[in-house]
Design a protein around this nucleic acid. Structure first.
Lengths: 151, 151
DNA sequence: AAAAATACTTTGATAATCAAAGTATTGGGC
DNA sequence: GCCCAATACTTTGATTATCAAAGTATTTTT
């Protein structure tokens, strides 16, 4: 008999290990086959704020600004984002989504919405509450134990 | 007020997006700083079975066998795994953990055990049941919707 | 006005990844 | 028993992701 521990561990391992693959698969079902999962996460970070600068995005994603520069170069080339020099402080580069970028952002958002919608539809109110509670605790646990890996 | 939907979405995004970073951070606290997170996942896959072959591991990890060959080359060089030709079918290469590999496997296992231990300690029996139920449903949902991305 | 700090880009290196081509071995059909 | 197809793996060539460190431009501090 598999213990509750083992079951829980397996679930978390499978979910965590496969979520990126799944996200990528979902992405490739849309009109955005030329986006990688990393690039999508840049688009996600840009879409969540209005015109964030490079440092802000890099921190959010947990990568260096140099790494982000390269990703943004490619996204500009592919037509998903734009660079805009800040006129107040000309060192700063703000990143915005193009119309195509907006569309990609919404396509990915729909992936999340569907997932959440499914969970809420499937579980009772009480169960959803417990799930939120449990995930909050796990997040908090990671935060305390491993610090700024998580924002 | 943030809706239950938004809270749940944020939790899942934060957990999913950061789990690899966190796992890597946990890894680097041990004696295995020269392992990357991908290499660790190979070690994990090898440790879960007795001497799996290349194809088996590659399928489990969702990468091509070519990709795995390179990872195994590096892991052999670093002394974590061994290649053993199958004497019954000499096309087959079975992969096993060295003693160092075993140690790395157990160190990573401890990371999982701690996490699970925390969850079980923190939640009531009923709550843990709901969590398992909810995660099972999410996994199933992904499986149905996106097929073999998940095993 | 010089020096230090900040924001970003570039460079050089390594790792992860795939598809496709190549090598070795096995199994099936005749 | 021999050939051909299939299988298991490795190699190759290309792309992407990543970092640290060096470089450039601009702003802030002294």
């Amino acid at each position: 008999m598999e213990s509750k521990r083992d079951i829980l561990n397996n679930l978390l391992v499978v979910l965590f290990n496969n979520i990126l693959t799944i996200e990528e698969k979902a992405l490739k079902t849309g009109d955005f086959k030329n986006l990688t999962i990393s690039e999508l996460h840049v688009i996600e970070a840009v879409g969540l704020e209005k015109a964030p600068n490079m440092t802000r995005i890099a921190n959010r994603l947990g990568v260096t600004v140099g790494t982000l520069t390269i990703a943004v170069n490619n996204l500009v080339r592919k037509g998903y984002v734009q660079r805009v020099r800040d006129e107040n402080d000309r060192r700063v580069v703000k990143i915005g989504l193009t119309d195509t970028g907006e569309a990609a952002y919404r396509h990915h958002e729909a992936f999340h919405d569907d997932m959440i919608e499914f969970v809420i539809r499937t579980l009772s109110d009480g169960e959803t509450g417990v799930l939120v509670e449990a995930l909050s605790k796990i997040t908090l646990y990671f935060e305390e134990k491993y610090g700024e890996g998580i924002q």
